[in-house]
Design a protein around this nucleic acid. Structure first.
Lengths: 194, 194
DNA sequence: CACACTTTTCAGTAAGTTCTGAAATTACAG
DNA sequence: CTGTAATTTCAGAACTTACTGAAAAGTGTG
């Protein structure tokens, strides 16, 4: 591995972190390297810096492309592929969340919906279904929230996050100001609501 | 594997899902099984239902305990260990997030802080450090938000999530009502702020 | 304190994954 | 077209992780 010490520390760490996720070490390292690099890199650059085989880099880049985490670019008069990450780190986060949702949450929701349609054949199954419904509803709430904030532009998103639970205070204030005593709690005006 | 079809579908799915995470198939299956079960189960119950070895179950349960995801219980006049999940699914989510933060975010933050202290020795390192600072700041923002909402009780948390980005609307309203023209944007009054 | 029951540990093996070098394929310049 | 540079594919080797059965350690009872 042929990298400035500072860069190497980070790259190695992300290699290990990758393993904790489903992602493999080399893929983690390639991404860390591209993330830190000012200029986009070609496959051979990556081979030299990480000291792994050319084919390994090829597969790693393919995987990162499947995740939409990497941007393919070309230089005039050079037909090699160059890879880089978005300059805006928020774009990276958005992609990551989106892709993980697609791979982990969506299939689970599909399965839960299917299973919840079935007729339970015993008390045990009835209880299991009840638990699955709790999970389904929780996921629905979370993905609904996600769909909502995901649409915000970054400035507003940062604003919202910076505020944290202080929002709560403002809500209470709002309630005190506007809610008619005895009326229902305020809720999202979802068209699906009956 | 000896389970009602409905339960089996779910258990198998979580086995697969486990593999996508760092978690192994058996651990995913054990957790899914415990989650769906009305009564806590002992190791032998799990062996029978999943059809895996006793030692595998023992290791799986140990891992789940290390994650704090499983509750050890006893029955009077029975010295076997029984395992169950919290009845409240929100408690499960809170534990999951907490543990993942501890294993993935915290070590990364430590590393980032260390590396950011060092003196860059080249333009390349300077740029790399800049990127790391972006990541550091982003993680700080996210963990700050998390620390904040994590303290809310579940009812208020659900309220907040249901609201989604509607919060934004209320913020704007608040701003219109209370902000003195020309003053700074509202922000979290963090004691670390200078 | 010994016995029966339960859980844990561990070494060996099975299964799965990552990685490599070589071969095949693709893309383009002349 | 042809030749060269670049990328991808792939079969097998190297490595890692998961799983098992057997043995060890722990735990409560009579």
């Amino acid at each position: 591995m042929n990298l400035p010490p500072l860069v190497q520390t980070f790259v190695l760490h992300f290699g290990e972190m990758g393993s904790r996720w489903g992602i493999n070490r080399t893929v983690g390292q390639i991404y860390a390297l591209l993330y830190l690099s000012k200029e986009p890199l070609n496959a051979e650059d990556i081979v030299e810096r990480l000291g792994v085989s050319r084919s390994n880099v090829s597969m790693g880049l393919k995987e990162l492309q499947a995740w939409n985490l990497v941007r393919l670019q070309h230089r005039p008069g050079d037909r090699r592929d160059y890879f880089g990450t978005p300059d805006d780190i928020w774009q990276i986060v958005r992609t990551l969340v989106e892709e993980r949702k697609k791979r982990e949450i969506d299939p689970t929701m599909t399965l839960l919906r299917e299973v919840l349609m079935q007729e339970p054949a015993s008390a045990e199954e009835r209880h299991a279904q009840e638990r699955m419904r709790e999970m389904h509803d929780l996921f629905e709430l979370l993905t609904g929230w996600y769909a909502d904030v995901q649409r915000l532009d970054t400035e507003r998103l940062v604003q919202l996050l910076t505020l944290g639970s202080k929002v709560q205070k403002i809500l209470e204030m709002k309630d005190r100001l506007f809610v008619v005593p005895g009326s229902k709690k305020s809720r999202r005006d979802d068209p699906k609501d009956k």
